[in-house]
Design a protein around this nucleic acid. Sequence first.
DNA 1: GTCTATACCCGGATAGAC
DNA 2: GTCTATCCGGGTATAGAC
Lengths: 164, 164
Amino acid sequence: MSRADEALRAARELLEQDGPDAMTMRRVADRVGIRAPSLYKHVPDKAELELRLVAEGLQELGRALRGAGPGLAELARAYRAWGLAHGRLYSLMTERPLPRERLPEGLEASAAAPLLEAVDGDTDRARAAWASAHGLLALELAGRFPAGADLDAAWAAMVAAFAG
Amino acid sequence: MSRADEALRAARELLEQDGPDAMTMRRVADRVGIRAPSLYKHVPDKAELELRLVAEGLQELGRALRGAGPGLAELARAYRAWGLAHGRLYSLMTERPLPRERLPEGLEASAAAPLLEAVDGDTDRARAAWASAHGLLALELAGRFPAGADLDAAWAAMVAAFAG
DNA sequence: GTCTATACCCGGATAGAC
DNA sequence: GTCTATCCGGGTATAGAC
C-alpha cells in the first residue's frame, strides 16, 4: 500500500470517526506515521485528498444502489442505509459542487443510473426524488428532526409520494 | 439600537455576504466599530450570536410561508425564494440540531404550520414534503446539480409528487 | 523521502488597566 | 464599556538539511 493510499485511508478514518474538523494534514500524517511536511511528497494538497474521498464515496454509494432490489422503496432504503453508515463522507460528497472534470468518467452517471431507471428516464422526476431522499437523509444526519420523530414513517411517505 | 443588536446585524451581513468563515468575532467587532474583546461585554459568546441568527431566520421564513398563497406549489415557491435570498442563513438554520429549548416558544411550530395545514395535518407527509423541499434547495444552494439542470422542472416534479 | 524549523495565517476568549 | 496585551489553540504549506 503506497503512502498516498495510506494517507487516503487515514483521512477517511479521521473524517468518519471524528468529523471533518479532525481531518487535518497534521493528523493524517500522524496516522500514517510521518510528519506533516512529508505528506506533501505523496499528496499534492488537502483538496486532492478530499477529491479522492468523494470519488471513493460515489463509487461505493453507486455500488450499494446497483445492488438494491427493484423499485423506489428498495432504492431509498439502500440510499439511506449507506448514508447513515457513512454520514460524514456523505456530507462531504453533497455539500459542495462536484468537481466533475476531475472525477473518473461515468462515475456520477453510474451512481445515478438505478434511480433514473426506476423513474423511466424522467430526469426531472429523478432529480426531485434524489433531492427528496437527500433532504431526508441530510436532516436526519444533522439531527435536525425533533427527538421523537418517526423517520421511518417519513421515508415511507416520501416513497409513497413518488411511487403513487 | 443596542450594541448587541448592532452585533447581530453585523454578524448577519458578514454571514450572508461573505459566508460562514467570515463571521468571526473579530470582524463582527470591526463592523460595530469596537475591538473584539469589547464585544464580549454585549454578547456572551459566538454561539449566542448564531442562536439569535437562527431564531431571526426562522421567524422570517415562517412569515414568508404564512404569506404564501394556498397550496403546495405556492408554499414551495415561497420556501425556495426565501432560501435562495438568504442561502447562508438558511444553511445555518438547517445544518445542525435546532436548540429548541433556547428558542422562543412556538417559533418552530409557527413556521411549520402552513405546510402542516396543506397536508391536512399528516405529520409524516409534512416531514417528507419539508425534507424534499429542503433537499432540492440545499443541493441548489451548494451548486451540486450539473450546470444545465432545469431546476424549475425539478421543483415542479416534486410538487406534483406530493400533490398528485 | 524524511526530518526540523518555520512562515504565515487564522480563530475564540480572558486579564487587567483606564 | 473600551482598550491593549496576551493566552492558547489551530491550520496549510514551504525551505533546506540529511
